[in-house]
Design a protein around this nucleic acid. Sequence first.
RNA 1: GUGAGUGUAGCUCAGUUGGCAGAGCUCCGGAUUGUGAUUCCGGCGGUCGUGGGUUCAAGCCCCAUCACUCACCCCA
Length: 426
Amino acid sequence: MSKIKAIRGMNDILPEQTPLWQYLEDCTRRVLNRYGYQQIRLPIVEQTELFKRSIGEVTDIVEKEMYTFDDRNGESLTLRPEGTAGCVRACEEHGLTFNQIQRLYYTGPMFRYERPQKGRYRQFHQIGVETFGMVGPDIDAELILLSARLWRELGLEENVRLELNSLGSSQARKTYRDELIAYLGNFKDELDPDSQRRLTSNPLRILDSKDGKTQEILKQAPSFVDFLDQESAIHFQELRTILDDNGIQYEVNPRLVRGLDYYCKTVFEWITDDLGAQGTVCAGGRYDGLVEQLGGRTTPAVGFAMGIERLVLMLQTLQRQPLGIDKTADVYLVAAGEEAQRWAIKLAEQIRNELDSLRVQVNCGASSFKAQLKRADKSGADVALIIGEEELAASEVSVKPLRGNGEQVRLSAGQLANHIKALMNK
RNA sequence: GUGAGUGUAGCUCAGUUGGCAGAGCUCCGGAUUGUGAUUCCGGCGGUCGUGGGUUCAAGCCCCAUCACUCACCCCA
């Protein structure tokens, strides 16, 4: 009988890993709070139609990467491949975008049926940030400043770079897209196979082709600069001014095209070279047309999403884990015999009452002092509290520092909390 | 969907020309009857991914298949 294993591309995040995930999530939440963002919690499953209408019918995501299935009533449902569509749907449904300004974030799993590789999985996790109701470049800038601050907090600022572009208004983008398709259509047979396919799936991506012949053809292609509408150009310039004001370094990459259909005007990506092929760690842009496209009133919107797996991978490979992140305890209680252990449990509860930020672990399961102390050491605890027959008889506890060169002392139960507190603050 | 690489103990990996299935780490016990992290000794632990083939004999050679990894594509 073969053992059941996890689905390809869907990973268990093991206890060894979760402290780093929590650290990243806590850090992000703290930064978002400092900018006044509120959390929204969204379903993982939506009507298939939502993604088709928002992401675009002919994108790779919709064409071949969605986990789609029929509900029991025959309705087609899809595991969300990204978060923006669902967020817009929810905001619309509850009137959050009606003449209002929103700064929102969410986190959770996304699903795409792709071949897994480093930094890319079928179930992956994003922290998404979306804002609604603000037309100007100021909010675009805020999102970038916010993410830049997060990299600083995480110690990653030296390892990411910002790329920036403007896709122009939806109209300008569409016009340019049509022109490009028309132009490239003349050379269809000379394009590399990938680009031929992109002609219908993702024409703007052809600009990015690594094929020499294709690049040759592109030299005479219409340039987007000629199609960029004035409003978008000004928007982009103002955004750049704010970034400059705040010392944010960036590179304008005219070839930067986001894969999802709904983007317009500002698009940006934070990219790293430390992750292999999947270097985009955070990406987003403006999507002024999406709300309307999904049946709401015209509402300006900007947002971005970051890939948690990729950031965790970065923190690991660059050794940016905070110190002591793998500790499971600050204080570990060791006891010899049943009576001593019963007292240890009571003492541990007492210490937890008195010092509420301390992690206190009691050895469970009878074993030798040696084994118990080994576990104490492995837990990462700074202090072992030892209760043997002698201590029990004297109603005292031996306090043994496990790190550094402190002396072991014996104390009464009443003295414990203060003593431990002093030890931990050193 | 395409290409390449790798599958041997819980983990990381050796395994020669085809000839008894190995090491380190982890875990448990002991050296030290009550003291971790260092040292020494012992122990637990195997469908060699799976199925077939060649052979007196296969972890090793051949075929198929599955899984994983990386890359293309695409994207967070």
